[in-house]
Design a protein around this nucleic acid. Structure first.
Length: 514
DNA sequence: CATTGCGGGTTAT
DNA sequence: ATAACCCGCAATG
């Protein structure tokens, strides 16, 4: 699935912006759910790579560089009430890529027939407070992919699922699709639930930050009804499953959203039950709210960087934290993170960095004693948020954690995750050859190579197939080995100054053609 | 109609 | 200069 230490290609070191890119002779299999700071190299004829596709909802972003396609993550569509579907799962739909279509998605009724909530965007802020970005760069013989940031939200439904529903018109009535979705979502749920805070980075210059982003706009008095005009169904006060930590994908209690049969079929709605209801979140009192507060212009837009100045309010404002509504028109966030309700509000140390910057994230990250090592699963942080956690479940998860850690250590001890490839030097519009007769590609805007980050990923997806997961999940029992198989483990040493350099200019035949 | 990519533009750092 | 984003356009399916 995502990034890997043992990636065929990422054994080399390169940055998408480099003028010199290693010549890659081994390629990665396409990673639909690439996450974290990672670099992959695909065959030039890889159809998915050629389409620049991703499971994440990525929209094109103009970086004014015709040679590198940049995309940024749109997050995920979730229910404004964070409702729990009858089977205990959550809603996580795929945001439309085009702004217009996405606006229309926002405010639509929650697909959960028993829920009065509305769909809203949970923005991605996994890259220093900004959306995760993907970069694509084509050469004659390879397609280079680089991702920056760690998605701090659930996976949306896969593109294929979204497309299938659209092509089926009122897809919510299709039972077969529902099953498909449920399976896929369930799989994603489980994978996400095992994801650990991925960043173990420390900004040495500024020190550890509490990066839990607070509401940008205090919002106690901004209760609203997101019902579309003429469709308001707010005369009903739902009992809300608003135990916020349930939406922390890194909490052992977290369960990924899932689309239900009841959503997709015409079957009568069964009585909704909220087995883990604890408190009613007054934020979602829709009783006396006009129906016209959901202005299209207020819906969806800019992903504001999170200012560390705000963090002080994060913990105490949990229950009042408004939802995130990004304004497509103005680029402002009108209502801030309900995402805080998804994730932990107990962030002690947030470490989020990329190759060039330190930054913020909504992740609740556990600080590893060793800054250079972090297990990328979801099992560590049982921090003040497990009131609803069954002890047995905790035990299970920690069992997985331990086995995963064991594997990780074993793997890293092998120490063969890195090889030194030939390098593919890319300068502008000319072809060069190194002494090994490697073909070099043309590239504009050569830049000085900046070996300023070091990261390694282990993707265990190669050890367990998707179908294995599915079948395991179908049995309603995820055993540890299966879970373990698709975990991402990664080491991120994001300390720029402290990172050992993998190479120097001596390793490159840098050619600059300004 | 949505997706995708392109590119001119703005704003902020 | 760089990065993030807005917006319109065109090609495509």
């Amino acid at each position: 699935m995502s990034c890997r230490v043992y990636s065929n290609s990422s054994s080399s070191d390169w940055d998408i912006n480099d003028s010199a890119i290693p010549r890659i002779n081994e390629f990665d299999t396409f990673s639909e759910w690439a996450d974290g700071h990672c670099r992959l190299v695909y065959r030039a004829d890889n159809e998915d790579a050629k389409r620049h596709s991703s499971g994440w909802a990525m929209r094109n972003t103009n970086n004014h560089n015709v040679h590198i396609l940049k995309k940024s993550c749109l997050g995920v569509l979730v229910c404004s009430l964070r409702c729990t579907l009858p089977n205990g799962d959550r809603v996580h739909l795929r945001p439309a890529i085009c702004d217009k279509a996405r606006k229309k998605q926002q405010g639509k009724p929650c697909p959960n027939r028993q829920c009065t909530g509305r769909l809203e965007i949970l923005a991605c802020r996994g890259h220093c407070g900004y959306p995760v970005t993907h970069f694509w760069r084509h050469t004659d013989h390879a397609i280079f992919f680089q991702a920056k940031g760690v998605h701090d939200h659930p996976r949306p439904e896969a593109k294929s699922t979204s497309e299938a529903r659209r092509s089926l018109g009122s897809g919510r009535r299709v039972r077969g699709l529902a099953v498909l979705l449920a399976k896929e979502a369930a799989l994603g749920n489980k994978l996400m639930s095992l994801r650990e805070p991925k960043r173990q980075c420390r900004d040495l210059t500024s020190g550890p930050r509490n990066l839990n982003p607070p509401p940008l706009i205090a919002d106690q008095d901004k209760g609203y009804c997101s019902c579309p005009p003429f469709e308001c169904i707010c005369n009903y006060q739902p009992v809300l499953p608003t135990t916020l930590q349930q939406y922390n994908p890194h909490s052992p209690t977290y369960q990924q959203p899932q689309v239900l049969d009841s959503y997709w079929t015409q079957e009568p709605a069964q009585a909704q039950s909220y087995p883990d209801v604890a408190t009613l979140n007054q934020q979602y009192d829709f009783t006396n709210i006009p129906a016209d507060l959901f202005q299209p212009e207020e819906i969806f837009q800019l992903d504001q960087p999170i200012k560390p100045d705000f963090v002080a309010t994060s913990t105490s404002d949990i229950n009042r934290s408004p939802s995130t509504l990004l304004d497509l028109g103005s680029g402002t966030i009108h209502r801030e993170f309900k995402s805080e309700e998804y994730w932990s509000q107990n962030i002690t140390t947030m470490i989020n960095d990329d190759s060039n910057n330190s930054g913020s994230s909504r992740f609740n990250l556990s600080q590893s004693p060793d800054n250079s090592l972090s297990l990328n699963n979801n099992l560590v942080p049982a921090i003040n948020q497990n009131q609803y956690m069954e002890s047995a479940k905790i035990d299970d998860l920690y069992g997985v954690h331990k086995s995963a850690q064991s594997y990780f250590q074993q793997t890293m001890l092998d120490g063969d995750y890195k090889t030194q490839p030939n390098f593919e030097i890319i300068a502008d519009n000319k072809v060069y050859f190194d002494e090994n007769m490697q073909n070099f590609e043309a590239f504009q805007n050569p830049k000085t190579y900046k070996p300023n980050y070091q990261e390694k990923y282990i993707d265990l997806g190669q050890y367990a197939e998707y179908n294995n997961f599915l079948s395991v999940y179908d049995g309603n029992k995820m055993n540890d080995s299966a879970m373990f198989g698709d975990l991402d483990f990664r080491i991120n040493n994001c300390v720029s100054g402290a990172s050992s350099l993998h190479y120097s200019h001596e390793n490159f035949d840098l050619i600059s053609h300004p």
